[in-house]
Design a protein around this nucleic acid. Structure first.
Lengths: 339, 339
DNA sequence: TTGAAAGCGGTACCAA
DNA sequence: TTGGTACCGCTTTCAA
């Protein structure tokens, strides 16, 4: 009934050979006469047989699966625009290699640790994709201790035993600041994301460097990357003295929330306030004014990360990957300051 | 090294019993003296043993995993705000029962069918969570044919052999229309979502009924649920004659895009145009004006769906579930028409 | 180049 | 209440 009732034995019998030969053939191993090999491949296809990963893993000690554990506040669980495309990128690699993605969403650090430990111990996955990297990320030593593998999006400052997939965002931030300065802005603020996160911190640092290099005194309001805090940071900036004429937000959702606050106060955007996001999202092109931002390539990240991780799992080693640098996407939310 | 090097044999040896007893104990089966049972449980805990799902599944014919296949246009892959919380809800159920979620994102119908077939044939999952239900959804007969299980979010009109998780949205739409009518709106339009999708169609139908019941002539512009089409539908409505004073969008992202278009045309919101979303998203409270919408409970859906599906897989049957009705969330984007 | 048999980590049946 | 053993589907020696 269930189409997969067919096993290696069925194939062996139908092809008139032993299980061993079927196994050797399927795994592209030498030592099978090419006629036999053809016949086996043929009948396997006819029967629609595909090896059972569970049974296979019992001897190969593989799960043929990769894990992604997302930690998100239950209060405001809503995943960044980044992830759908990231997962789709991962998927393109996995599906053509018979692997699968195991996704887990956890509410806090304790549950997170349990999730990694459980997935590794039960051999549910062969390795992990590490996103939202923290400066001192406990997951890296944890995964080492668990005897599993990983790749990280971004390079941990302390170094990592695992491959790193990175993308130059610094030059994009330079460009973005130059763009604003070129428009005539002198008071530029940055509503930064969670600075315990590597990309939040790095963006903040680079923003400050770029601003100073342009002779400006950088103003930074740190947040946790949530729209809420993006909104309150904006309110603080707009209600304070020396109101900025441009605000660079750590991500698009915060920029959108910030625009809401500015509109609420009756400001004309971008005339009285220029805003930019970061990590360009789809919805960013449809708000008013449409959002200037730095693009990102979540699918590219997913593809590179999955490829490297699979390679690490299979060959025991894999190289770091550097993706093409982020690019500036100029839309309608930035303009010369009206003054 | 890897903590899970410990197997049932290790536990049996350490407890001084046979594998069989360990297995019986772990599966809460009768016929084990309670002292022995205690001793086994104790040593299992000490050794940190947890049964290997792959090996287990070999005889039980279970994967101890559920599947979620998402079909998304590669062009504009960005997943609805619904999914993160939905998955988190699923997770709460799965994690405490030693199950896991396998997530797949596919670009088109062909890949989708392959994904279901593969997941089922390879016994990677015991059943599927069906979201974004279509009016005539080919996935239901497909999954039956594959000999697997499913639960669907929403009730297929043709009926379904699988449990249905549903939530009354009709009364919410009635409330929403009544809210607008109460404010004094006479020309209310609906930018509907993809009408091949069950919830898109149902919302449209109910909107029309509610409008007619209030003595209004409903205007509907169908879309595919994307912000793009939300934007272009809005442009068409605003530029046409007999411009509506209120627009009900099929989801929040379209409403946000629509507000962008209205702002771009210099309209004052909500004075000159009231707008509402549907399926309340987090970001919707931070745009300007903050979005009136109908709430949703993605986590509740996830919890109910996973519970029912697991029950179906284990007991061969599970009842339908009706979640509490959607409620109106009135925020700042709706007001009396200025005229 | 091929087949037989053992073993991976469990479950299930049967006899003790 | 217990232990022995066959077996799940596949990979991997090892002999033939």
């Amino acid at each position: 009934m269930s189409p997969s009732a067919v096993t290696i034995n069925d194939v062996a019998r139908a092809a008139g050979v032993s299980k061993s030969l079927v196994s050797l053939t399927l795994n592209d191993r030498p030592g099978v006469k090419s006629e036999t090999r053809e016949r086996i491949l043929q009948t396997a296809k006819e029967l629609g047989w595909t090896p059972n990963p569970g049974a296979r893993g019992l001897t190969t000690r593989r799960a043929y699966a990769l894990g992604l554990v997302l930690r998100r506040e239950p209060r405001t669980i809503e995943v960044d625009p980044f992830f759908a495309a990231f997962i789709a990128g991962v998927e393109t690699v996995l599906s053509e290699r018979g692997n699968v993605l195991v996704l887990t969403v956890v509410p806090d650090a304790a549950a997170e640790e349990r999730a990694y430990a459980r997935l590794a111990a039960d051999k549910r996955v062969d390795g992990f994709l590490l996103t939202d990297l923290l400066a001192e990320d406990a997951r890296i030593p944890l995964i080492e201790r668990l005897g599993s593998f990983a790749v990280s999006l971004g390079a941990p400052p302390g170094g990592s035993p695992f491959p790193v997939i990175s993308r130059d965002y610094d030059s994009g931030i330079d460009e973005l600041v130059a763009h604003l300065v070129g428009l005539g802005h002198h008071r530029i603020a940055h509503v930064s994301g969670d600075e315990r996160m590597l990309h939040g911190l790095r963006r903040r640092e680079r923003f400050e460097e770029a601003a100073r290099a342009a002779g400006l005194e950088p103003v930074v309001v740190p947040t946790d990357f949530s729209p809420e805090q993006g909104a309150s940071a904006t309110a603080a900036l707009l209600d304070g003295e020396d109101r900025p004429t441009a605000i660079v937000y750590g991500n698009d959702p915060m920029a959108i929330a910030g625009m809401g606050v500015a509109h609420e106060r009756g400001l004309d955007l971008p005339g009285e306030l220029s805003v930019t996001g970061l990590d360009g999202s789809h919805i960013g092109s449809f708000v008013y004014p449409s959002l200037t931002t730095l693009d990102n390539d979540p699918a590219g990240f997913g593809l590179a990360a999955a490829t490297a991780l699979l390679r690490l799992v299979e060959d025991g080693e894999a190289a770091d990957v550097a993706l093409p640098p982020a690019r500036l996407v100029v839309r309608a939310s930035t303009a010369p300051p009206a003054r």
